[in-house]
Each structure stands twice: as C-alpha cells, then as structure tokens.
C-alpha cells in the first residue's frame, strides 16, 4: 500500500498484530496490518464496530503493545520502547482524542489543558497563557473556566482537541471524535480537524463510522474488516 510520500513517512506500520485472550479464546483484533502515513496527511479508517479500529489507534498512540510487527514513528520503533519511553511518546509525539472526550471532570477546560502542559514539562507560570491560546485556536476563549459538565458535546470535544495539541504532537489520533455528537456538531468538529490539517499541517489519523463525512476531508480512507485492511480509497493529494 503505497502513498505519494512513502519514502519519508511520519508513521510506518509494518505487519502489526494484536491478539487478545478472552479466557481460552484468542481474539485477533488486528491481523498483520501495514501502511504508512505521511507528514500532513489526513487519513481515515472506517469499519464496522469490532473491526479493530480502536485497537490499531491505541497501538499507534502507545497505550497498548503490539503482539508482533513494527510501528515506526519518526523512525523510532514503538514495539521496542520501554514503558517510560512510551510515556514520552504519548506526551510528545502523539495527541489523542476520543469519542467520550475523556476530560477530567473536576477540572476546568483551562486546567485540563494546563495538566497536559505540566506533563509536557512547561513552566507553571507559562501554562495558563499557552492553554488559553490553544483554547482560542479551537474557538473556546469564552469557556476557559467551565468544567466539562458545563460544556456542550461539541465544546467538550474542542477542549479535548486543544489538549491533544497542547504539546505540539507530530500526529493527532482521533478515535470516533464525532461518535457522541449530533450531525451538525459533527460537521463542525470535522471542519475544525480539516482546518488544523490544512492550515497548521497537523497529521491526522482518524477512526470513524461516518464514511460520508470522512470523505469530505480525508486524503485517504482505509477500510478495516476483521482486523485487516480490505480496501483503500485515495481521495486527494496532500497539498
């Protein structure tokens, strides 16, 4: 599966396998998937529920370990990393957003961002400034001191996006970011991701149910079925 820029990919996935054990039964969540992601690419993975999309994203995000295969991010192999190195990868190289937002409910929008900045090692006095800057980039300058419970779904996902981008990662990983949103808000979020990809050249690896919406913004769409890539659509060139 080639891309235009396969010689210098930001992410290179090689024969990655992930098996789970449910009692005595083995679940092959990801079965020998290989593909590359180029810098500034917006790539979407679609597939039925249980096809292994989240598992794949978690492997790239360094939240989970592959059973076999290799995962190169900026030429560093994730499958060979120590736990502390994986933490560093999650902190610096990738940013993740989820269907259920996963914001810390007891903290305000601003504090959710500053926490990420704190993990990123920024000095305390610089964090607030930086956090509000990022929040205004996603259009939330008026919601800094709101707790997640006081935000709409769309706003919460924007905070999550802002948090994912706080430490300026190389890749944004989005696991069904519109899964909990109505169609109007879904479009807004997808357009925000598109804007980030177009204007700020953020590399995006997104997982979604909504193939139609994905088609409007993605460079490429991969179809996953039973843990395998069964089809690839190239929609447009990376500008």
């Amino acid at each position: 599966m080639n891309t235009e820029d396969s010689l210098n990919p930001i992410l290179r996935i090689q024969k990655i396998v992930k098996n789970y054990h449910k009692g005595s039964i083995q679940v092959q969540a990801v079965q020998s998937i290989s593909f590359d992601v180029s810098k500034s690419e917006f790539i979407t993975i679609v597939g039925r529920s249980g096809s292994g999309k989240s598992t794949l994203l978690n492997l790239v995000g360094g939240l989970d370990r592959a059973t076999s295969g290799h995962l190169f991010v900026n030429n560093a192999d994730l499958t060979k990393m120590k736990r502390s190195e994986l933490a560093l990868h999650r902190r610096q190289t990738v940013g993740m957003i989820f269907q259920s937002f996963n914001l810390i409910p007891s903290r305000t929008a601003l504090e959710n961002i500053t926490l990420a900045l704190a993990f990123g090692g920024m000095k305390r006095r610089d964090r607030k400034q930086k956090a509000s800057e990022i929040l205004s980039r996603v259009g939330l300058e008026h919601r800094l001191d709101h707790k997640p419970g006081e935000l709409s779904g769309g706003e919460a996902q924007r905070v999550a996006i802002a948090r994912a981008l706080a430490n300026e990662p190389d890749i944004l990983l989005a696991d069904e970011p519109t899964g909990n949103l109505d169609s109007k808000t879904s479009i807004e979020i997808i357009q925000l991701l598109e804007k980030l990809n177009q204007k700020q050249h953020v590399t995006i690896l997104m997982v979604t149910h909504d193939e139609e919406l994905a088609k409007t913004v993605s460079h490429r769409i991969l179809h996953l079925f039973d843990g395998k890539i069964v089809h690839q659509q190239i929609l447009r060139r990376i500008s």
Partner: peptide, 16 residues
Amino acid sequence: TREIGIMKAIGGSENE
C-alpha cells in the same frame, strides 16, 4: 481509574 487512564494518555509517566 479513568482519570489515571487519561493522565497516562496525555503523557503521564508511571513515576509521575
């Protein structure tokens, strides 16, 4: 647990 998971996802190391 979820909060700890979030902290790990945004880059918190085991030591932190």
